[in-house]
């Protein structure tokens, strides 16, 4: 029996008249890599923000490992936002120290190994890195935590294909049967090989929830092809 690590119940988020999330409910078990797929503005980022306590829902709730979102969940959730959130003035070794200071499950050794394999010097200031390297550093720090839930919001946005491969490899390497990874993206072709399950989200609603294997066996097409069908403009 797979323990439920993430559950979303009747979750709604409204901004005035606009509905970003419309009564969403779903559950995720441990040990899977889940794709949260949808076009821009479908509610993926809103969902992730609520799961991380950066937004409060209008109605409904998210529970992580049975706990409501709060300090308890923040210590077991590792979040990669879709924008640059690290202090630009810090050096790489200071960033590693920062993560180590606040997260008990952070492995500085793991982070340092990965950073070294990228050829990055510990004394480099974050602001002097190229965009691709900044994305990699943020991802490395996020995946060097031994978290129970990883929430990655557009981890591959705006980077070259080689960097995308590196990011996918890092995610696979960080995977464990004990933890779950949720990747929100619209770059599906790259990512679908590593996904177990996909959730299609559109205009704040989950329109499809399936395992990748059953989509391919039953529909005879890739998730990317199905996505294009479902979300045809």
């Amino acid at each position: 029996m797979n323990e439920i690590i993430f559950s979303c119940n009747d979750l709604t988020k409204k901004y005035g008249k606009e509905t970003a999330l419309d009564n969403i409910s779903f559950e995720l078990g441990r040990g899977s890599i889940v794709g949260l797929l949808g076009p821009n503005g479908s509610g993926k980022t809103t969902l992730m923000k609520i799961a991380n306590g950066l937004l409060q829902p209008t109605a409904g709730e998210i529970k992580i490992k049975g706990m409501p979102v709060g300090i308890g969940t923040k210590s077991i959730v590792s979040y990669l936002p879709d924008c640059m959130s690290l202090p630009e003035w810090m050096r790489i070794r200071e960033l590693v120290k920062f993560y180590g200071d606040f997260y008990a499950d952070f492995s500085a050794r793991k982070a340092e190994e990965m950073l070294k394999s990228l050829g990055l010097d510990n004394e480099t200031r974050f602001k002097t890195l190229s965009k691709g390297n900044k994305e990699k550093v943020q991802l490395i720090l996020t995946m060097s935590r031994n978290a129970e839930l990883y929430l990655l919001d557009e981890p591959m946005g705006g980077v070259d294909p080689a960097t995308r491969d590196y990011i996918l490899d890092t995610i696979i390497a960080g995977y464990s049967e004990n933890s779950t990874v949720v990747i929100s993206t619209h770059l599906i072709a790259d990512v679908e090989k590593i996904l177990d399950t996909v959730l299609f989200i559109d205009k704040g609603r989950i329109v499809r929830s399936d395992s990748v294997d059953s989509i391919r066996s039953n529909e005879g097409k890739s998730v990317d092809a199905l996505f294009r069908e479902v979300f045809r403009c």
């Binding site: 210590s75 959130s85 690290l86 202090p87 606040f102």
Partner: peptide, 17 residues
């Protein structure tokens, strides 16, 4: 910048009130 801006994504996801 740190509390209300981009760095807020980092700061407010720390296990701290």
């Amino acid at each position: 910048r740190n509390t209300l801006g981009k760095e807020g994504y980092l700061m407010h996801t720390l296990p701290v009130s």
